[in-house]
Design a protein around this nucleic acid. Structure first.
Lengths: 214, 214
DNA sequence: TAGATTGTTAATCGATTAACAATC
DNA sequence: TAGATTGTTAATCGATTAACAATC
């Protein structure tokens, strides 16, 4: 395993892509793949793929390549997709509701137990099976239900407050959709989805398109 | 300007963060900032900030630092936030509706004209002011309304088809939320928001937390 | 065995950081 | 002028690519 090594974030962020392509191959019934073929599919070099995978162990076999199912399983294990965590969402507006409906949670082993909002019009409603409750009961709920993941889909202004409540309540990881940089203790994992930054990047390349295509 | 240079993607992706913090400073009425102060706010080193900015020109002044308003304006210009583009959204489900409601479009100079879906139950509805139409009319709409940005919030299975329609209709950039790697000609800009990859990364760090905190 | 492909070391490339002369 | 801070070059660090011996 990776007891001693600190694998770099750039490697980690490529793993989900490997995992996804291997899942596709698995569905197609293909049970063997070489780094060269994976290279064609993912756009990463074969050398990089072998380097990446060898951070976690030698999953391949010389002269053969990789067994698709085994590598898929190993990556799932490495990514922690086999571990189930309880999650809650703070902010039950459009984005919060969309996230609550997001099918991908199951694949990652996350279970959304409840949404929270301060808008009385929303409190009491259900998104699929998931209830929207008053944000005042957030802390209590987290403590009582063994919640380890907090999702933030509130406006920017409330994001840090919610994060503080999460941390105080014992949450371990935050999936943050608010366009803010949260201040958290260093043992708290924060993963940001900054839509504005993504959109601005798109805008940049549109404006400067000719610089790159000429 | 940056006529000759190809600024690296890692630099570009830091610009929105600078822009955001400068916007905050502007609101607070602060009109002068040094790279060292920006370093404290953003977490990037002062050296890196100066390097980044100097890819686009010398916006600072020795002994003084940077004028907040001017730098904010310059970054806005560099990011193309002053240019207005028309956009459409394909896929009017939860995510599509959330994206349609997303306030950040205005900041980036994007205007969402219409949503498209194939579900008859959705066609005809309005999200705020934005109508949902039949996806069959997508190509025609794009050509008639000078649409340059296509957003994809459909399921994975339909993403490539929509992308193909977009490209055929003359769209220049795609903001893709589907967990798929789109195949597009090289003059088309694609910016991905891969929620599954973000979630898997969060999962990884949760599982391997102790490796990093000890 | 011969061919294929990994795992891994070494070489290269690019990005970050350090340092400091230029200059406001 | 003296102090501050940039713009920019040089040094360092880390990530990617190339190469090839190991081995299935």
């Amino acid at each position: 395993m990776d007891k001693d090594s600190k694998v770099s974030i750039t490697v980690i962020r490529r793993l989900p892509k490997y995992y996804r392509y291997l899942g596709d191959l698995l569905k197609k019934g293909i049970n063997r793949i070489s780094s060269q073929e994976l290279s064609k599919m993912t756009g990463f070099t074969a050398s990089q793929i072998r380097q990446d995978l060898n951070n976690f162990g030698g999953f391949g076999q010389q002269g053969y390549g990789y067994n698709v199912e085994e590598l898929h399983n190993q990556l799932g294990r490495i990514l922690g997709l086999d571990t189930v965590y309880n999650a809650v969402i703070a902010g039950a507006g459009n984005l919060g509701q969309a996230v609550a409906n997001y099918k991908g949670f199951e694949d990652a082993g996350f279970k959304v137990l409840c949404l929270f909002d301060k808008n009385p019009k929303l409190i009491g409603l259900k998104i699929r099976e998931i209830e929207i409750r008053d944000v005042d009961s957030l802390e209590e709920f987290i403590k009582e239900n063994n919640v380890e993941i907090g999702i933030i889909t509130t406006p920017k202004e409330n994001a840090q407050d919610i994060a503080d409540t999460y941390i105080k309540s014992g949450i371990k990881g935050i999936w943050n959709f608010a366009p803010a940089d949260l201040k958290v203790p260093e043992d708290i994992i924060v993963e940001n989805v900054h839509l504005n930054e993504s959109l601005f990047t798109l805008s940049y390349f549109l404006k400067n398109r000719s610089d790159y295509t000429t």
